[in-house]
Design a binder for these strands. Structure first.
Length: 263
DNA sequence: AGTCACCTGATT
DNA sequence: AATCAGGTGACT
């Protein structure tokens, strides 16, 4: 599921479940799924934030839970902790009977508990929030000049900008008409400006789609909730020029792009 | 800078 | 049986 827009929607949906009761216990699928769970017991959730693709559950008494959904995770509230699907890999039981659960068929998602002083260190490797004030074309240009990597791999690096993944990196490059294989350091200032605004457009429009889908149960399982131009569309016509969309391996995963209009 | 391990399930 | 999957950190 989750790149930045999906993680943001998860955060917003969780916020709607406030006010929170106290955490009375926790459970986990394996010891690696959640670490430090005991530090959450007796505390209350005070806020839900997002940093890149991470969720932060701020707890009373100066602690927080960092949740990473990885490939297939979802974090939500169930009305009854005892009625949890098999794919729930970790949960916090609340004293009103509800539970906050990490539902993750693939079991790659992780939760860890930390004192608030550790937050800076924990997220030190993350670049600017793309929808925040620090993400400017100038900052993106400076980052591009410091790397030898192809544009797509550079964009997916969480140190470049926090929250883009395989889908939205490909979509932003399509939108900006940039070949994903082109070394980032070669991109002109004008192209970087185009890319910067493409990232904002793609993420904002995905966010609108994801929010709409969340208000309609089942929308995610129906497949297309975001109108992708190239991702997963190998061989289908480019919506801009009609040429066949191509799929190439980059960094061990698939990149989709239009060979005719991305230069 | 590139590859692999972590996991499970869907698809070919 | 093999390959692929919206992620990332730990290895060569």
């Amino acid at each position: 599921m989750p790149e930045l827009p999906e993680v943001q929607a998860v955060a917003e949906r969780l916020r709607a479940a406030a006010p929170w009761a106290r955490i009375t216990g926790f459970g986990r699928f394996r010891s690696t799924t959640m670490t430090g769970g005991r530090h959450a017991v007796g505390r209350r959730i005070e806020a839900v934030d997002r940093r890149g693709k991470n969720l932060i559950l701020r707890l009373s008494g100066g602690w927080f839970a960092r949740v990473h959904l990885k490939m297939t995770g979802d974090l939500r509230v169930l009305p009854d902790a005892r009625l949890r699907p098999q794919t729930v890999r970790a949960w916090f039981a609340l004293d009103d009977g509800r539970a906050v659960v990490l539902d993750d068929p693939r079991a790659l998602g992780r939760i860890s508990l930390h004192p608030e002083q550790e937050e800076q260190e924990l997220f030190r490797h993350l670049g600017p929030e793309p929808l925040g004030p620090e993400f400017t074309a100038a900052a993106l240009l400076a980052s591009a000049r410091r790397t030898a990597r192809p544009a797509k791999l550079w964009l997916m690096d969480q140190a470049t900008v926090a929250g883009l993944g395989n889908i939205y990196a490909a979509e932003a490059l399509f939108e900006a008409r940039i070949d994903p294989r082109r070394p980032a350091a070669q991109l002109s200032r004008q192209r970087i400006e185009r890319l910067h605004s493409a990232i904002l457009r793609v993420l904002n429009s995905a966010l609108a789609s994801v929010r709409a889908a969340y208000e309609r149960p089942g929308a995610f399982t129906e497949g297309e909730f975001y109108p992708v131009a190239v991702y997963g569309r190998e061989g289908r016509p480019c919506p801009r020029c009609g040429a066949a969309v191509r799929r190439i391996p980059q960094g061990g995963r698939s990149t989709y792009y239009c060979p005719k209009c991305q230069k």
